[in-house]
Design a protein around this nucleic acid. Structure first.
Lengths: 214, 214
DNA sequence: ATCATTCGATACGGTCCGTCTCGTCCATGA
DNA sequence: TCATGGACGAGACGGACCGTATCGAATGAT
């Protein structure tokens, strides 16, 4: 019984839940997809997240509301995909052997993304929506935050093993100490996010942990 | 012509715009105010910030929608006032002469507020609304965050002058390093906010700055 | 050629918005 | 004592969006 439920695969039960590609049909329109994502970014940047509506996305994209609902579950899902398309350039994390400089560069890229006139407001709106919608929170955490946080953690791991960073510090805590203040300024105090501020944070957090660097 | 329109003051036009207290009238109903604030907190805790509506507040409070709009400008304004009534207990900041312990105690109170089943979701919703509405952001910053941040800054100042804390550190940065990770966990990663986590953050940030304490 | 699937367009009931207008109640000042 | 005027509960109003359903036309694999 337990075997059937958790372990062994009962092939009789493996019915095809979704009958896919039984016969041909029209393909998803890439043109409509791009138009919708672009319109969503434009409108949200213009009106702010709350006042932006799916109906407005459809109007500007020259598409139908139903086409949006067919492929995305919510306004947040549309904007998350739109952000993912645009975010890649800003979040590169290189490993040059100088972990402090690498992290500093990545954080500077992050605040560039935060303060981008088109993307910043969209990103803050998405984080705001995540406060009321657990699905949005889970999805954003998995697609947007998770991979980047893991990359930073791995960089800190490699630096510690290479002896360039103190190995005793809790690396999850270090990441919180580095990025927490950035989000705090973005979402709460709204003080300006500058490269100088990144320098201050990096120096205060990583300075005491650096090994073998002047 | 232009003078009359823009420059010179034509006293004949200076009519009293708002005739106040010319004669008596009914007073604002404290009972209605309390009922509305309580209903707003209840409903928002039940449904979440976005799904809570002013119409629902009025229904549960047994009041009229118009009564809400007469005294508050928005759902956010109602909830901010409701939060201010309830927040005072959690945010005490004492000055016992041990700044590290005082800050640690205050931060523990803050996460108690964050994780309160009734107030936490309301607070996160208010922060979310502030991302799309500059008025909400300004008001929350002035009434909720400003005074408490100033209190912590002054405590750090006194501690530095008393020689219990290093006087060289930028105290604004220290506050960001202390509270940023808390908001980061609350709003972004959603990892649990525990007293142990507060200890970790306080030790990492204030430990290197403490003077004359074991 | 058939047929499933997409597309744009549009209609639908529903919720909530923010404003407005009633009639009632009540504190004040004449 | 009594008229005045503001706050109150109730509810109507047009409007914006929501999320769903339905339509005919276009598309593409079988």
């Amino acid at each position: 019984m337990m075997d059937e439920a958790r372990g062994g695969v009962n092939t009789d039960r493996l019915v095809c839940l979704k009958v896919v590609d039984v016969a041909g049909g029209a393909q998803r329109s890439e043109k409509a997809r791009q138009a919708i994502l672009a319109a969503a970014l434009e409108i949200t940047a213009e009106l702010g997240y709350e006042r932006a509506s799916i109906e407005a996305f459809a109007r500007r994209a020259g598409s139908s509301k139903q086409t949006i609902y067919r492929w995305w579950s919510s306004k947040a899902a549309v904007l998350q995909e739109a952000l993912e398309n645009e975010i890649r350039s800003s979040t590169g994390l290189r490993d040059t052997g100088d972990p402090v400089a690498d992290v500093r560069a990545q954080m500077t890229g992050v605040i560039g993304f935060f303060t981008d006139p088109r993307l910043g407001a969209v990103f803050r709106g998405l984080l705001a929506a995540a406060q009321s919608d657990p699905d949005v929170a889970e999805s954003a955490l998995r697609s947007l935050f998770g991979p980047r946080r893991r990359a930073v953690l791995e960089l800190l791991d490699r630096a510690a093993h290479a002896g360039r960073l103190s190995g005793t510090a809790d690396r999850d805590l270090v990441v919180d100490l580095l990025y927490g203040p950035l989000y705090y300024r973005l979402l709460v105090t709204r003080d300006p996010l500058t490269a100088e501020y990144v320098d201050q944070v990096v120096d205060a957090v990583l300075g005491p942990l650096a090994v073998g660097q002047r």
